[in-house]
Amino acid sequence: MKALLPIGLVAGLALAAACTQPSEPQGALLFAENCTSCHGLSARGDGPLAQDYGIDVPDLTLIAARNGGTFPMTRVMSTIDGFTRVQHGDVVMPEFGAILADGPVVSYDAGDGVLTPTPAPLVALAEYLESLQRTE
């Protein structure tokens, strides 16, 4: 006779496994949906709209390299959210804060020990960008 696990235990284990999955797949999906038109699939600033606007879109794989080798997570999230406005000639990067505000909220520590409620999709997208960093 097989021993059966209680349904609550099985559900709990499944939930625990889901909570420990990295956010990179969500970040990659958000990047594909919201960023590739300007930054390109490679994130190197070669998207089709960048060419249409005739502007130099930043290479997002070199954010850390442009920042002394450290990925500025809080500044990146602020730029994505729209708190920090990025302008390229006459073109301004859109604000994505409202789009990324849907969904769960996580506690984010910007390095000062203060946990700030932050949209999980925003953190996921920034973590994905961090995973793309190269040294040049």
Rank of each mutant, 00 (worst) to 15 (best):
T116P: 02
G68H: 08
D52N: 13
Y53S: 11
N67E: 08
P25T: 03
Q51C: 02
V76T: 15
L132D: 02
A17Y: 14
C38K: 00
S131L: 00
G12V: 09
P119F: 07
A124R: 07
P121T: 03
C19P: 00
D56M: 14
G8L: 15
A43I: 12
F31N: 09
L4K: 10
E33V: 00
L100P: 10
S37N: 04
V106I: 13
E127Q: 14
L49C: 03
M1F: 12
P72W: 11
G97E: 00
L9S: 13
H88M: 11
A11M: 15
A120N: 04
A126D: 11
L41Q: 05
F31L: 02
A28H: 07
A50F: 02
D102C: 00
Q26R: 12
P94R: 08
R66L: 05
L15K: 01
G89N: 07
L15Q: 05
Y128A: 09
A32M: 01
F71N: 07
P121I: 01
G103N: 03
A17S: 09
T84P: 00
R44H: 00
A120D: 08
G12R: 11
Y128D: 03
P6L: 15
I55C: 11
A3R: 11
D90V: 12
Y128N: 08
D102Q: 09
R134D: 00
T118S: 05
G12S: 12
L49I: 04
K2C: 04
L4R: 12
R85C: 00
L49M: 13
I55V: 15
L5I: 06
L9F: 12
K2A: 11
D56W: 07
D90M: 08
P25M: 05
L132S: 11
G68S: 05
G68F: 03
